[in-house]
């Protein structure tokens, strides 16, 4: 079995759920090893990587300088010289790291993948494109493959036999890059599950008129994250991190609830691959209804409180 390296994503020192999804996918492609770039992991995090099958955790010690894509790619390259396949979570930054690594190694790259499998010794990936109206299967013809996989497209499952998760330190000198990070202003971590990873997303658009009280309440009841349309973030009603769409966050939750969102193609491109889609909009002609499994033409102020009350009642009963 060939080595499949998985780039670990962390948040406040903890491994993220999409990393476990990537490890689960990697187990179907070969023998997974995890690559950790940054300050050394806590033993608990090592153990968690082992649970999802990592045989080794290769640590490349690095600081904020590894935030520069060229430096991150060099660190990842040093730790994955024996890997036929490198799997990572599809984020804007990782797409840049994947590109740099591919140029260094000759690997073929697919980003935004919704899955991958080995076919006749080649990695083939699945993607949805054109606002999730088409399915595409791509073969990576090059000998080495890099796959950046979207969160929520593979179910994270612990390995039948846990991996050893042996810590191996990789001594890599990060290259001097032209780019220098002058300042880093941390964005406060969202409360609850991050948008891209949430099993349920409740989004509000122009129809909220800027009041997210009911949207947040429904998201809380359903255990989901709060999203928004471009209209709403442009109005300054909610921060850009909440924007669902082609240039914001792409989400594929089991349930997507669009509240007062018309459903312009830019928005649909970021959510159309979701499991079940529910829409509430006052405009019966809103394009969002074309892709909604359950649509309500009505006022958010009437519909949402009634739905929330009914869910509470159901749970109490």
């Amino acid at each position: 079995m060939s080595t499949v390296a998985v780039l670990v994503e962390t948040r406040s020192g903890e491994v993220t759920q999409p990393t476990f999804e990537a490890l689960t996918l990697a187990r179907t492609l070969g023998t997974p090893v995890a690559v950790w770039i940054g300050a050394a992991p806590e033993p608990a995090e090592l153990a968690r990587l082992g649970v999802y099958g990592a045989e080794e955790v290769r640590v490349v010690p690095a600081g904020d300088d590894a935030r520069v894509p060229a430096a991150a790619a060099a660190a990842l390259g040093a730790a994955t010289q024996d890997a036929a396949v490198v799997v990572m979570v599809s984020t804007f930054v990782n797409k840049e790291v994947a590109t740099r690594l591919a140029l260094a190694t000759g690997a073929g790259v697919v980003v935004d993948a919704a899955g991958a499998e080995l076919v006749d010794g080649h990695v083939e990936t699945l993607q949805t494109v054109f606002a999730a109206t088409w399915n595409v299967r791509t073969r990576i013809a090059a000998e080495r493959a890099i796959v950046a996989v979207r969160p929520n497209t593979t179910q994270a499952i612990a390995g039948e036999t846990p991996g050893a998760a042996t810590l191996v330190e990789v001594g890599a000198e990060l290259p001097e890059t032209r780019e220098a990070i002058v300042a880093i202003e941390p964005v406060p971590a969202p409360e609850g599950v991050p948008l891209a990873e949430a099993p349920v997303v409740v989004s509000g658009g122009r129809g909220t008129n800027g009041d997210y009280t009911l949207v947040r309440e429904l998201a809380d009841v359903l255990g989901g994250a709060v999203g928004a349309s471009r209209d709403a973030t442009d109005e300054g009603w909610i921060s850009h991190e909440h924007m669902v769409g082609q240039t914001g966050t792409t989400v594929t939750p089991a349930l997507y609830v669009a509240c007062g969102i018309s459903g312009a193609v830019h928005h649909r491109g970021g959510m159309q691959a979701s499991g079940t889609v529910v829409a509430v909009n006052i405009d019966p002609d809103a394009p969002i209804f074309e892709i909604a499994d359950f649509g309500v033409v009505g006022d958010l102020g009437d519909v949402l409180p009634q739905a929330i009350a009914r869910i509470h009642e159901h749970r109490a009963g």
Partner: peptide
Amino acid sequence: NRVKVTDTGDAGTQLADFLI
């Protein structure tokens, strides 16, 4: 099998029942 209803007073309940 898409469903689209116009609220006549109980669409919120219908929505919740669909999710349940």
